[in-house]
Design a protein around this nucleic acid. Structure first.
Length: 639
RNA sequence: GCCAGAUUAGCUCAGUUGGCAGAGCAGCUGAUUCGUAAUCAGCAGGUCGCGGGUUCAAGUCCCGUGUCUGGCUCCA
């Protein structure tokens, strides 16, 4: 007998070799029907695998994250079975579960798969799923496995096998399809009831752009048709929040083929919004001891040779601008740091001057790969809410904490409740990629880890994600479609001060090297506004939104009244406009609802007599009437 | 940069087998002066992304290219 410990702490004895499925059945048949896999001693395994030692056991169903992952991974195998049936000779790469669904990377050979083929594959998957085929696990020797895939002519699987140890290799088979796989899988294909293949894309084999490009098919499956429909509805809703769509509808920004791709053009409403955001941060920075500066948009190539950026990114940048005089080369600035280093270095600095916090909303230009451009979130010209803090090594941690506080304040003020913070450290396997000494790197990495711990900020740590000059802390939020974007960033840099030979005179009357902290709470105005637009679905916070109210006249007899009201509200510091088109009131309401104007003030006979305002809230409807001062008060109370 | 798809009026989109370029919304003009999500009528709006080719004839077929979309790679 072995002892099984359940998540609630209950312990029960079962025969040696019992499976999770048998345990589930002993509890209830209903539970057993829903079990997809099991977590045994922390490891997720097939529900049908025998348990041979005293263990903790958690039965995994659709309601568990790991249960879903098992389900979707098995769905990837089902899709592979369908592909093999429909397109014999297809070769397979890898097919994992992802956050929402799964994908499989395949090499379809001469055949090119297109989106039109997906429906046919879905139909085949459903047909195969209905056979209730079991997912059968089989341990196999490396030689035998290689023989199988050699016969099948699948070089990708053979390559995967090369990296595996003999004795660790398992195959899974369902129906007619056998795959190299460590598992686990769901009991049988019958659990898969609803299938949607979402899109098709190219993906480099093993993520390496020098290797062949495979076809990646993304899909998602559900145990119930209704759940699939709900998910697809959710996707539709998310698309409505896309900042590229809302940006066009709300006339925030545009792109022009003639101006160039990746170069956003800010329209009046977008500019109003953006400037308000900038003003908010500028005011906050003044309070916190930052000094604003302004620097040019270009700089000598030599500046970037000094900074090291030319060596690192020169080939992939906008190429130098040549002047009429021979031999002069200027770069569009890809970042503001070198200019700010020159500011620090332009006169002798004392330790009494530190920390020196230099801030600039600096527009930079980076030649991003054409395929990577995406709305406002990945562009070729953008404005960083940049600042560089020059301080003594002893001040690093306090300054880091201050910046952390500012960044979290900014993110929360804009209504992002769920964000994650990622500490990016250097790849210990590949230290030559980075500039700067081992000792400095270790110090900087420790400063970040300590500071985030001190404020209790939950973080994830990624090795190899650091910038080439130093470790960093990035704040990440998700867009409407669940794609993660980096917003604010804080980076410790021991390298640039070295390269620019920056110095200050210490209390000991000798020269010392300052430490530099790069930081941008928004990250870039473009990306931040893009992500913010999706986050609030175009309904910006009242303090930020371009227009807070619209005055809708019931007929043009009320035009002069509308103008008086507008003036009064503007004098009270509110922003709005009169919709005086000769349209019906219903039409004006509809249009301004769609433009997401937070408040609509309807002005007609009734208001002319009472002197009050009829107030309508966007998305909520009629709020009844109130006096002008009450309305001003209402808006101010929400800012 | 790579793979796949898209590209027609300001916007959203039709356009059959290659045979005169279409609709709705927006715009303009006129009528209507209206009470909480679309008043009515008329008018105007196009080098079908761009450049080649095939053809008696190309929005439609072929080649090249720009831009966009979904991913991959990249992201100072």
């Amino acid at each position: 007998m072995i002892r099984i410990t359940f998540p609630d702490g209950r312990v029960q004895e079962y025969p040696h070799g019992v499976t999770a499925m048998e345990v589930a059945k002993s509890i209830s048949e209903g539970l057993a029907r829903n079990v997809l896999s099991a977590k045994v001693n922390g490891e997720v395994i097939d529900a049908q695998r025998p348990i041979t030692t005293d263990s903790t056991l958690q039965l995994l169903t659709w309601n568990d994250k790991e249960g879903k992952a098992t389900y979707w991974h098995s769905s990837a195998h089902l899709m592979a079975e369908a592909l093999e049936a429909l397109y014999p000779g297809t070769r397979f790469g890898i097919g994992p579960a992802i956050e929402n669904g799964f994908y499989y990377d395949i090499d379809p050979g001469d055949h090119t798969l297109t989106a039109q083929d997906l429906v046919q594959i879905e139909t085949k998957m459903i047909e195969l799923a209905k056979k209730n085929s079991e997912y059968r696990r089989q341990e196999i020797s490396k030689d035998e496995a290689i023989r199988y895939f050699t016969e099948k002519n699948d070089p990708y699987k053979i390559e995967l096998l090369q990296d595996l140890k003999d004795g660790d290799i398992t195959f899974y088979t369902q129906g007619e399809f056998t795959d190299l796989c460590k598992g686990p899988h769901i009991p049988n294909t019958g659990h898969i009831k609803a299938v949607k293949l979402l899109n098709i894309a190219g993906a480099y084999w093993r993520g390496d752009e020098t290797r062949p490009q495979l076809t990646r098919i993304y899909g998602i499956t559900f145990p119930k048709q209704k759940e699939l429909e709900e998910y697809l509805h959710l996707l539709e809703e998310a698309k409505k929040r896309d900042h590229r769509k809302l940006g066009q509808e709300l006339e925030l920004f545009m792109f022009s083929e003639k101006v160039g791709s990746g170069l956003p053009i800010w329209l009046p409403k977008g500019t109003a919004l953006r400037q308000r955001l900038e003003d908010f941060l500028k005011a906050e920075q003044i309070k916190r001891g930052y000094t604003p500066v302004i620097t040019p948009h270009i700089g000598h190539k030599a500046l970037y040779e000094t900074s090291g950026h030319w060596e690192k990114y020169g080939q992939d940048s906008f190429q130098p601008i040549h002047t009429p005089r021979e031999g002069e080369e200027f770069m569009l600035k890809p970042m503001n740091c070198p200019h700010h280093c020159e500011i620090f270095g332009h006169k002798p600095r004392s330790y009494r001057d530190l920390p020196l916090r230099i801030a600039e909303f600096g527009t930079v230009y980076r030649y991003e790969q054409s395929g990577e451009l995406h709305g406002l979130t990945r562009v070729r010209s953008f404005t960083q809410d940049d600042a560089h803090i020059f301080c003594t090594p002893d001040q690093v941690k306090d300054e880091f904490l201050n910046v952390l506080d500012l960044t979290m304040m900014v993110i929360r003020k804009l209504g992002f409740e769920t964000f994650t913070a990622q500490i990016s450290l250097r790849d210990p396997e590949n230290k030559s990629k980075y500039l700067g000494s081992d000792e400095n790197w270790a110090k900087a990495e420790q400063a970040i880890i300590d500071a985030t711990k001190e404020v209790g900020l939950p973080t994830t740590t990624e090795l190899g994600e650091a910038a080439f000059y130093g470790p960093k802390l990035d704040f990440m939020v998700k867009d409407a479609l669940g794609r993660s974007w980096q917003l604010g960033t804080i980076q410790v840099d021991y390298n640039l001060p070295e390269r620019f030979q920056l110095e200050y005179i210490g209390a000991d009357n000798s020269k010392h090297r300052p430490v530099m902290i790069h930081r941008a709470p928004f990250g870039s105005m473009e990306r931040f506004i893009g992500v913010l637009t999706e986050h609030c679905a175009g309904k910006f916070p009242l303090w930020l939104t371009p227009d807070q109210f619209a005055i809708l006249t019931v007929s043009d007899r009320f035009q002069s009244l509308a103008e008086t009201v507008l003036q009064t509200l503007q004098q009270a510091g509110l922003r709005g406009f009169i919709d005086d088109r000769t349209e019906s009131i219903g039409k004006k309401i509809r249009d301004n609802e769609l433009r997401k104007i937070p408040y609509m003030l309807i002005l007609g006979e009734k208001e002319a007599e009472s002197g009050q305002l009829s107030v309508r809230r966007q998305g909520e409807g009629d709020q009844g009437s109130m006096t002008i001062p009450d309305f001003v008060q209402l808006i101010q109370s929400q800012i």
